[in-house]
C-alpha cells in the first residue's frame, strides 16, 4: 500500500463522485420536469451551470474569510467522501480504513460551519437567516440519524464502517433486519439532501436563496460542484450503513440511484415546512421510530 495507490484511488473516487453527482442532479431536474409535465433540461444541465459559473466574475469582495467559506465546505465534503468505503473490493489501499463513523458525522457538520463563517462576514441578513435556519434544522436532522447510527453500531459492535459492512454481509442487510432504524434514518437523509419538505435553508420565497445569497461566479460554481460530491457521499453513507455497500460499480450506481429516486419522489409532492415545523416533525415521528427500533434490538 503505497502513497501512490492511495492517491490514485482517491482521485478515482473523487472523479466518479463528481460525475455521478452531476448526472444525478441533472437527472433530478429532468425527472422532476417529467412529473411537472414538461420536457425539462438536458441531463448535463447541472454540469453546464457549474462550469459556466466557474468562468464568471464575482460581484462581491468581503475579505478572505468570505473566500474561505466555500473552500471549507468543499474540503469537508471531499474528506467525507474519501473516508467512506467506496467499493467492498477496494478495502486495501483506501483512505477509508482510517475513517470512522464518528469522524464522518463530525465532517458532515463542517459544511454548515464553513457556510456560517463566510455568510457571517458578508453580513447579508438573508444569508444569516439561512444559516440560522440551517443550524436549527441540523439539530432536528441529527437526532433521528444519530439514533439510527447508534443502533447500527451497537449491532455490529464497532464504529468502523467496514465492520458494519462486514456484519451485513454475514447476517443480511440492515434495512431488512432493522426497518424502523432505516426509516428513521431515511427521514433525516431526505432532510440532509435538501429535499422538500425540509428545504427550509434556501427557500427562495422566504429567504432569497439563503446562505448562497451573496455568492456569485466561481464561488457559486464551487458550491455547486461541492454539492454534487457531497450529495453522492451522503448516498454512499446510507448505502454503506443500511444496504451493505456495493461490490461493483453497477451495483453501487443502482443502489445509490434508487435511494436518490426516493428523495426525488418525496420532494415533488410535498411543500416546504417552516423551520420549527420541520424540527418538530423530525423530533417527534422519526425519533420515536428510532427509539422503538433501538428498544427492539
Amino acid at each position: 500500500m503505497t502513497i501512490l495507490t492511495i492517491m490514485g484511488q482517491g482521485m478515482a473516487v473523487l472523479l466518479f463522485a463528481y460525475v455521478a453527482g452531476m448526472l444525478y442532479y441533472g437527472l433530478y431536474r429532468n425527472i422532476t420536469a417529467r412529473f411537472q409535465k414538461r420536457i425539462g433540461p438536458p441531463v448535463l444541465q447541472t454540469f453546464y451551470d457549474s462550469m459556466k459559473l466557474l468562468f464568471k466574475d464575482e460581484a462581491t469582495a468581503f475579505g478572505w474569510m468570505f473566500y474561505l467559506g466555500p473552500v471549507i465546505m468543499a474540503t469537508g465534503s471531499v474528506l467525507t467522501l474519501l473516508l467512506l468505503p467506496f467499493l467492498r473490493v477496494w478495502h486495501e489501499g483506501s483512505l477509508s480504513v482510517y475513517g470512522d463513523l464518528f469522524v464522518i458525522l463530525y465532517l458532515m457538520v463542517m459544511g454548515p460551519l464553513g457556510n456560517a463563517l463566510a455568510v457571517g462576514v458578508s453580513g447579508n441578513p438573508f444569508g444569516v437567516m439561512g444559516v440560522t435556519r440551517g443550524l436549527t434544522r441540523l439539530m432536528g436532522l441529527e437526532l433521528p440519524f444519530y439514533i439510527a447510527v447508534i443502533g447500527v453500531m451497537s449491532v455490529a459492535q464497532s464504529s468502523d464502517i467496514w465492520h458494519i459492512i462486514a456484519w451485513q454481509q454475514i447476517h443480511g442487510i440492515n434495512m431488512i433486519h432493522y426497518p424502523l432504524l432505516f426509516i428513521a434514518a431515511l427521514f433525516s437523509f431526505v432532510g440532509f439532501m435538501g429535499s422538500s419538505p425540509f428545504d427550509v435553508v434556501a427557500a427562495p420565497q422566504e429567504v432569497y436563496s439563503g446562505p448562497r445569497s451573496e455568492f456569485s461566479g466561481k464561488f457559486l460554481g464551487l458550491l455547486m460542484s461541492q454539492n454534487a460530491i457531497f450529495g453522492f457521499a451522503k448516498l454512499l453513507l446510507m448505502v454503506d450503513l443500511f444496504w451493505g455497500g456495493a461490490d461493483s460499480i453497477v451495483e453501487l450506481i443502482l443502489k445509490t440511484f434508487t435511494l436518490f429516486l426516493v428523495t426525488i419522489v418525496i420532494g415533488v409532492v410535498y411543500g416546504r415546512f417552516k423551520v420549527h415545523q420541520a424540527v418538530d416533525f423530525l423530533v417527534k415521528f422519526p425519533t420515536l421510530l428510532g427509539v422503538v427500533g433501538l428498544l427492539l434490538l
Binding site: R29, A33, Q36, K37, R38, I39, G40, P41, P42, Q45, Y48, D49, A59, T60, P204, Y208, S209, R212, S213, E214, F215, S216, L220
Partner: peptide, 20 residues
C-alpha cells in the same frame, strides 16, 4: 418558464438573487 413553453429545455432557468 412553466410546462407549456418550458424554457428550461434550453437551459434557461430562474435565479433568486442578482448575484447568481
Amino acid at each position: 418558464f412553466t410546462s407549456r413553453y418550458d424554457a428550461e429545455r434550453f437551459g434557461i432557468r430562474g435565479a433568486a438573487t442578482p448575484r447568481q
